[in-house]
Design a protein around this nucleic acid. Structure first.
Lengths: 190, 190
DNA sequence: TCCAACATGTAACAAGTTACATGATTTG
DNA sequence: CAAATCATGTAACTTGTTACATGTTGGA
């Protein structure tokens, strides 16, 4: 059987608090969405499956007068499965797919003007993303320079955000370095 | 229609030189496999599709006496499609999935002993990967400190490898920093 | 002569995307 | 009262994985 990452990311989210399918969809647009995501169409199907398998249970919460919000919470089985999965040690790392880097491998025959556009476009996207992550970070952790006082609930959030920020900073710095290099290579041909 | 990244990564590889399905499978275990990969079962199916669509053409090369190796090369259509795809500017970056980071978000209730194991295991995997990338890099580019003299064929390879190395270095440094932080947080509780 | 690597494929299934479909609630 | 957001779902399709299946070639 496959790895069912979506299953475990839903169980993980539900371990923090009860949620509806809609809530889970929203969560994937926030911090955790930096490392895993799914569309609502996939989420509703997976929730039904997890319910069938007794990893979660369901109850109804009224939102307004007629709108029934389906809330989900972990069962004992679900809690155990999650715990077990988190503690499992990986024996290899999967390919971290990156379409921009993939394209670079095929740069041959591309005019330098176009290469500059590609890099500048990517820089813009990455800087925007970094800016948003930093905004999230300072909203949550402010100026607080001592993350050692975070409780275990906040720690996960802190680690994930610093990871995402560090990843983007590194991406941007590599983009800048590579663009410089390409420009220098062009100059050396004149 | 979907984005067909596998299609374009195959076209990209074939733009460098004619290859068989087997050759393409092997390529995905090398540099380019850091950013995209696929199993042979998927590759053979995709090649048949690309042949149908006239993006590639096929010829036979005898390997030994009876073994017919099916070689593929780009058609004019395939070359144009590739060129167009490489030059397209993205308007957003997709989620860069990372299961280890995902797990960290769900750390609550995990004993510190186990957290150390998770980090140390990941450090080991990442360091091994970095070592292999550095080996590849020095094999290809040696001590040569002046990448500005690379021709456009080598440039793509250089960029992809430095990207992968930089990504791993950043990952490792974030792992070390976070592990330190967690240890300090534990000490502060005594 | 055996084994690893070369070489190509299919079938069944799981995972993920896009589009279609509907209705309630809140806010300006 | 209109529009944005909340809320849930299904259908058709694409993409990706695992397992099954077979045969060749080169080297120790």
């Amino acid at each position: 059987m496959a790895r069912r990452i979506l299953k475990f990311s839903i169980l993980g989210l539900l371990s923090k608090q009860d949620m509806s399918g809609y809530d889970i969809t929203i969560e994937f647009t926030k911090a955790i969405g930096q490392f895993w995501s799914a569309k609502h169409s996939q989420i509703y199907v997976e929730l039904k499956k997890l319910l069938d398998e007794d990893s979660i249970s369901q109850y109804i919460e009224m939102a307004g007068v007629k709108l029934e919000k389906k809330m989900y919470c972990l069962t004992t089985k679900g809690k155990e499965e999650l715990q077990k999965w988190v503690l499992e040690l990986d024996d290899s790392v999967e390919t971290e797919k990156d379409i921009f880097a993939l394209k670079l491998y095929f740069l041959k025959d591309i005019p330098k003007q176009e290469i500059h556009s590609l890099f500048n476009n990517q820089l813009q996207l990455r800087e925007k993303k970094l800016f948003n992550l930093q905004k999230q970070f300072s909203f949550l952790f402010g100026n607080q320079q001592n993350p050692i006082y975070l409780d275990s609930e906040e720690l996960g959030h802190y680690l994930v955000l610093t990871k995402a920020i560090s990843r983007e900073e590194n991406y941007i710095s590599w983009l800048n370095g590579s663009l410089d290099l390409i420009k220098k290579a062009e100059d050396s041909l004149t």
